[in-house]
Each structure stands twice: as structure tokens, then as C-alpha cells.
Design a protein around this nucleic acid. Structure first.
Lengths: 243, 243
DNA sequence: TTATAAAACGTCATTTTTACGTTTATTTTT
DNA sequence: AAAAATAAACGTAAAAATGACGTTTTATAA
């Protein structure tokens, strides 16, 4: 990619990755480190982000950022909010960092989140020191990225209740319990397995496969898949007022 | 307000106003007109918007824009999306207009929508030629504002099903049928009055007042109000998975 | 062969929804 | 003053969905 003029706007990406084995919802963060005269000035983590090139859409920027970080394309992506508070980058560490990196007034960022599977990302020899952190056990964060993550997570919590985005975080073939575990991870609640199971199995767009789990040390569970086609057909004109 | 440095970013506002008497959901648009040598070059409507000042949050900008357009403050406001396609302002009319207005590369805009009552806005002697248009009967629109409006409307449709924002569009005292009419306007569906009525009346946060309609030429209806306090208490920790 | 543990199924009371029919209260007309 | 008109408000019963549990099945491991 040839250098392009840079706009005064950036895109930051909250990358959610779910690990179906450890049942852990994670966020991918990169290390931010700066020292001078043997003194550590900055040592924390941040979201990945980058400036928007002039000839690029915002979506393009987000896609590019994810590609550079993980190598992945075609992942679920949602632009959820722009952050433009003029004071958002004025704490001491951030000012130091910004000076060091030779950019300034990075005031406005358009934030995206991605939903993908932790296992799809290969973090061996990545340049950014990118690391997964459980969403409920994050390290110290730079800039206003804690705020951005919180808002992304809040949006995800609401959205997963009304749209089938949960399946973006799961492998194509999953068990009913995988889905329940994921809901419980995201929402931080407990769900009755018997009722959840019945409800999910009765959905037309949850399709039982002719396959079971392999390599488990107890009774292997039935595998299912999600049919986006059927889902889309079912909800073309259905509204349910539930305020 | 003293002049301030301007950022390369704007805020555009989709102002939804509901007229409870005519049962019409409207959008407030301003006229865009440009002629040269008796030839009309640009003649259409656009959303109100303005550049973001350096020392302003995005929310501040939106609030300021609404105030200048309608005189109103403290209205329901939602930032719903940033638009940053580099080609969004490159059609012939927009290029002409941008030259005339002496600003350039207004590529990125953060879009908000407001929910308020049409009757609260006094449009007599407004400078911008602002006019209400029914949301389903819009005039020709400049820039990419048709797209922005469509996305705002889509967001509103989804959001009004799960949050009590509908009451931002209604007077403080309303009838059950007012609420039904509004849902029908927004969603473009028909709702069974008897079931809707029962459902709404049973909500603890819908409070019957000791008042009835006045000045109607049939049996006057009971007036109700929405209690945000009760609503908030009820939904502090309730989740309902409904995918 | 038996014990174990997760997977999967079942039941019943309660609540919510859907699809209608009926009555009541107020205004306008006769 | 009575009657007609009409929107408001209430009612009912079947069907579907939910919530709270108990029970059975099946594959693996001891």
C-alpha cells in the first residue's frame, strides 16, 4: 500500500474473540511502551487503530486495521460510536506518547468492534505484542480506550439479545451448551439449561447436523449450525413491540 | 459565541418531529438554493449540520446545531453513525455548493437524530427556510442526506421496539390511542387496539392521570403519562434473550 | 460391569399473546 | 329529551411461550 495523505481522524477497533474451549470472551490489545533514561514513561495496553486515509471509507480503514493486526478479513464488523471529546487524550502519558509518535490532535476516532473466534487468530510473531485479555479482566489501558471498550461491550450485550450475532463468535458447528456458555459469558448471568435448550432447538434456523462432538471425555453432544438464510426469511417483516 | 477553529469534521442532525394531531412523523429540513445568471444550479433540501469546533465535544456540536435551528435544548439526542465515504459529496450539485460556501473536503460527518414534538418548534421567521416533511414523503435531498435519513429511521424503528423513546415524540399527557398511532406511523404496521391497549395499561410505568381529553367531539379519552423513574427501576438488571 | 457426568428429554403451572366480540360513555342529531 | 352515532374501554377463550423443576439417556472412564 502506498503512502497516502492522512486525515485528522482515526478508527479504533475493539476486537472481541471468543474461545469456545475456555469459555472466555476476550479482547485483543496491543502493548504501548516508552522509556527514556531508564525510566519507564508509558507501559500499558491500547486498542489497535489507525488514521483514515483520504481515499478510504471508514469501513475500509477498520477492515485494514483488523487485517494488519490479525491477518483476517470478512469478519463481523460494526461501527458503534464516534468519540470526539476534545479532552480525551490529554492525560500525561498520552501526551508523552503522542509526542513520541509524532502525531497530534488525534481527537476524533470512529470506533468499531469485531466479532470473531480467538482460535482464528495466529498471534505467533506479531509485531505489535498483541495479546488477548478476558473482557472482565483487562490490563491498564491508554488513551480513553477503557471507555471505548465499555461502550462496545454494552452495545454487544444489548445487540446479542435481539440479533443472531452470537454465532459470529462461535465455530460453524456448535453445541447447544456452547451457545448457552457464550450468552452466560457475555451477559454475566446464569441460564436454565433445560429451558434454553428447548427454546433454541425450536428455532427453525438452528439446524441439527448429522454429527456429534469428537474427542470429548463424556457423552458427545449433538452439533448444530445457524442458518442465516432461514433467519433472514423469518424476520423480513416481523416486529415485536416489547417496551 | 466567539469564532473558533474548525475541524475537518461535521455533525449532521436528523430532527424527527411527531405531530400528534395529524399523526404524522416528520423530518425538519432546510432549503439549499443556488443560482447564477438566472440559472438554477442547486434547489433541494438538506439536513442541518455544522463543523465541529476544536473545543467542542461532538454532542455539544449537535446540541448547538439543534438550538440554532429550533431554539430547543434538552431534547432526546442520539449519535447513530459516522459517515465517511470519500465519494459522498462528489456529485455535481454538491461540488458547486461546496465551492459556493467556501469549505472543502467535508468528508466525514457524525450523524445524530433528535426526537421531539413538531408543535414545540416555532418555524415562523427562521432564517434557514426550515420545513417539516413527512418521513415517507421527502423532497429531493442534497449530499448523501437521503442515506443518512434512511439509516436514522431504520435505527429509530429498531430502537422504539425495545426502549421507551416513543414518549419523547409525544406530549407529556397522551392517550393510549396516541401511542398506538405513533407506533403505526413509525413502523408502518397495523396493531390490534384491544390487545395494544391492555398491554400498555398493564405496564407499571404507564400512569393513568385524573384527566381526560378536552375539546374533542366524541367521548373523551383517558390521559396517561410515562414514568421514567418506574421504568428505570424495573429494568436495572433484566435481560430477555429473544433471538 | 459399574460408576460417572454431561447430554437430552419431560411435566406442569403460570404468563403472555392472539384473535376476536361486547359494553360504555360522551357528543351530536333528531 | 330521546335517539343515533362513534370512539373509548372492557371481556373472553384458545394458543403459545416461559419458568421452575424432575427424570432419563448415553458415552466415557474406572
Amino acid at each position: 500500500m502506498k503512502p497516502e495523505k492522512i486525515l485528522n481522524i482515526s478508527v479504533d477497533c475493539v476486537v472481541f474473540g471468543y474461545d469456545v474451549n475456555t469459555k472466555s470472551l476476550n479482547i485483543l490489545l496491543i502493548k504501548r511502551y516508552l522509556e527514556s533514561k531508564n525510566e519507564v514513561l508509558v507501559d500499558d495496553y491500547v486498542l489497535t487503530g489507525y488514521h483514515v486515509y483520504t481515499h478510504e471509507t471508514l469501513d475500509d480503514t477498520a477492515t485494514r486495521v483488523l487485517k494488519e493486526l490479525t491477518g483476517l478479513t470478512n469478519q463481523y464488523k460494526k461501527q458503534f460510536k464516534a468519540f470526539g471529546n476534545p479532552n480525551r487524550l490529554t492525560n500525561a502519558k498520552d501526551v508523552l506518547w503522542i509526542k513520541n509518535e509524532e502525531f497530534n490532535s488525534r481527537t476524533i476516532t470512529v470506533a468499531y468492534y469485531f466479532l470473531l473466534k480467538t482460535e482464528d487468530v495466529d498471534l505467533t510473531n506479531n509485531k505489535n505484542n498483541a495479546t488477548w485479555f478476558p473482557v472482565n479482566d483487562l490490563p491498564e489501558l491508554g488513551f480513553d480506550h477503557e471507555k471505548i471498550i465499555k461502550e462496545a461491550y454494552a452495545d454487544l450485550k444489548v445487540k446479542c439479545l435481539s440479533e443472531p450475532i452470537i454465532f459470529k463468535l462461535l465455530p460453524d458447528k456448535f453445541t447447544i451448551n456452547d451457545v448457552q456458555d457464550l450468552y452466560e459469558s457475555i451477559l454475566g448471568i446464569e441460564i436454565d439449561n433445560r429451558n434454553f435448550r428447548r427454546k433454541l432447538i425450536n428455532k427453525k434456523y438452528i439446524i441439527a447436523l448429522d454429527e456429534k462432538q469428537v474427542g470429548v471425555s463424556k457423552r458427545p453432544a449433538q452439533l448444530y449450525m445457524f442458518s442465516k438464510d432461514i433467519y433472514d426469511k423469518m424476520f423480513q417483516k416481523n416486529y415485536l413491540i416489547s417496551i
